[in-house]
Design a protein around this nucleic acid. Structure first.
Ligand code: ZN
Length: 503
DNA sequence: CGGTTTTGACCAGCGC
DNA sequence: GCGCTGGTCAAAACCG
């Protein structure tokens, strides 16, 4: 694995804008001295299944320690003495040997202690790095958002932007106001909202104070409140709904029924979707009451070894580190999708014209864009199924297909934070699930690079975010073992290796 | 017994 | 209006 692939995270940790974790990471010492430079991915890797890089001194040490605990360098002297002392007949020598043995034992104990310490440090590092990933992504997202706002404020290169907008119009073709309207009024809870005769919430509340009603209530609140009770906070509700609409899809090869992402999910439905004989399962996050996050799990029709997991929404609760990877990924991707496609009041795209220009002018940009089939929601797809091995480009990032859900829908009037509804398909190549992620810029897809798409991926912030996201998915989700999601799930990064036990 | 899964029913949106 | 489809609900079954 190339180190960092653009994710050389400085140890100068950014201020923490969000409390991603409950401050209870058990092994998290306050004065943890490790330098995280360039080690994020490796540090989060599973030392049982993956070879670690030499530059990760910390882990290489632990690895060798593990293998040679009894042959540690500190013991060489003693072992030598041991062999010499065999033929001794003198008591002094006996004593010496005894002493040496004691010393040896002490040293061995010490080695064991150090091993244990290394182990715990490693875990700690895992925590730190996964935490860092999340923060990094969030920071990058914030930076980019600010940047875009700045750009819009400056109203820079108008012509360029017009051009860009034109291109985006051709490609993005979002739903504009219509979508906005829909998402605000009747996206999710249409059923409940318009036929309250079916199940009155109060009635249900009265009937049983049990978990279900509580859950339903919370669930209703969570989704209804923004649209019904907060007309004033239009923007936030808009963000919510658009956020809710943004989807992040992860494709990974897995025989397991579900990808382990550290969250707790409850299945609430299953459908046979059209065009795919494999059923699609619907899950809802149950880590907190009323958490709006949902996901769909479905096998790819063409290749049933590919598991497509689509996330929707943002968690409304703190997450354990194990869940941070995927959650921050989806969150970051969704926010990137949002921020990268929101428009200013004048209807122009809030995208950095320079980035766009760069993307347009540089067909050899790391990211490729192409159009693909329509999709009802703006979706970022992280494709972990590619197995290309050209993995030497650190900054290489992925292919990106921008999809337009409704090709004929006019694009104008993107006010507020409405989606232009591009479906952004970010594909990145991982060398293998075994060794982790290896991004490649050489995936030669079509070159009809969509401007907006290319711009998104050409954005260094986006790159950072995506890189962090990917690293989180690949290396972060197992940073700690307290993922008690034991439903035969599988971690994407170890699909081929040690976790074949649940097949 | 509480939480999860299963599964048929229901609903809204959309195209015809 | 009708049928199709995706998404959700919720009662029953299942499970640890
Ligand atoms: Zn959640």
């Amino acid at each position: 694995m190339e180190k960092g692939w653009g994710l050389t995270l400085d140890s100068s940790s950014p201020h923490t804008p969000l409390a991603f974790f409950p401050p209870s990471s058990p092994n998290m010492a306050s004065g943890f001295p490790l330098n995280l430079n360039n080690t994020i991915i490796e540090t989060t890797s599973d030392n049982h299944t993956r070879k670690l890089l030499a530059e990760v001194d910390f882990f290489s040490n632990t690895n060798t320690n593990k293998a040679s605990a009894s042959v540690n360098t500190g013991l060489q002297l003693l072992t030598g003495i041991n062999t010499v002392s065999d033929e001794s007949t003198v008591d002094a020598e006996e004593d010496k040997r005894a002493k040496n043995n004691i010393e040896l034992k002490q040293l061995q104990d010490e080695v064991e202690r150090m091993n244990a310490e290394n182990q715990s440090l490693k875990e700690m590092l895992g925590h730190v790095s996964s935490k860092y990933n999340g923060l990094q992504m969030h920071l990058a997202a914030l930076i980019q958002q600010r940047q875009q706002h700045q750009v819009v404020g400056e109203k820079g290169d108008h012509e360029e932007r017009k051009q860009v907008e034109k291109r985006f119009l051709e490609v993005g073709g979002g739903n504009s106001a219509q979508e906005e309207e829909v998402s605000n009024s009747c996206s999710d809870e249409r059923t409940r909202s318009n036929n309250n005769g079916k199940i009155s919430e109060e009635e249900k509340e009265i009937n049983d104070g049990g978990a279900e009603s509580e859950y339903s209530q919370a669930y209703n609140n969570n989704n209804k409140v923004p649209k019904l009770n907060h007309p004033s906070s239009a923007s936030t509700s808009m963000d919510q709904s658009t956020m809710r609409k943004a989807r992040v899809s992860v494709r990974a090869r897995s025989e397991a029924p579900m990808i382990s992402d550290g969250c707790q999910w409850r299945k609430y439905g299953q459908k046979i979707a059209k065009g795919n004989p494999c059923p699609r399962a619907y899950y809802r996050c149950t880590m907190a009451l009323g958490c709006p996050v949902r996901k769909q799990v479905q096998r790819c029709a063409e290749d049933r070894s590919i598991l497509i997991t689509t996330y929707e929404g943002n968690h409304s609760h703190p997450l354990p580190p194990a869940a941070m990877a995927m959650a921050s990924t989806t969150s970051a991707a969704a926010s990137m999708l949002l921020s990268g496609s929101t428009t200013s009041a004048d209807g122009s795209i809030n995208m950095n014209p320079n980035l766009l220009a760069r993307a347009i002018l540089n067909p050899n940009s790391n990211s490729m864009a192409s159009l693909s089939a329509s999709a009802p929601f703006p979706t970022v797809t992280l494709d972990l199924t590619h197995n290309n091995n050209n993995n030497n480009n650190i900054n290489s990032l992925p292919l990106l297909n921008l999809q337009r859900p409704h090709p004929t829908t006019p694009f104008h009037h993107f006010t507020h934070a409405a989606f232009p509804s591009p479906q952004t398909l970010l594909q990145y190549n991982n060398q293998s699930k075994l060794s982790g992620l290896h991004l490649s810029s050489h995936q030669q897809h079509s070159m009809q690079a969509d401007a907006a798409t290319a711009a998104i991926t050409a954005d260094p912030n986006f790159t950072a975010v995506l890189a962090a996201a990917i690293s989180s998915i690949i290396g972060g989700s197992h940073a700690n073992n307290n993922n008690d999601n034991d439903h035969g799930d599988i971690n994407p990064h170890v699909l081929n290796s040690s976790t074949t036990n649940n097949n």
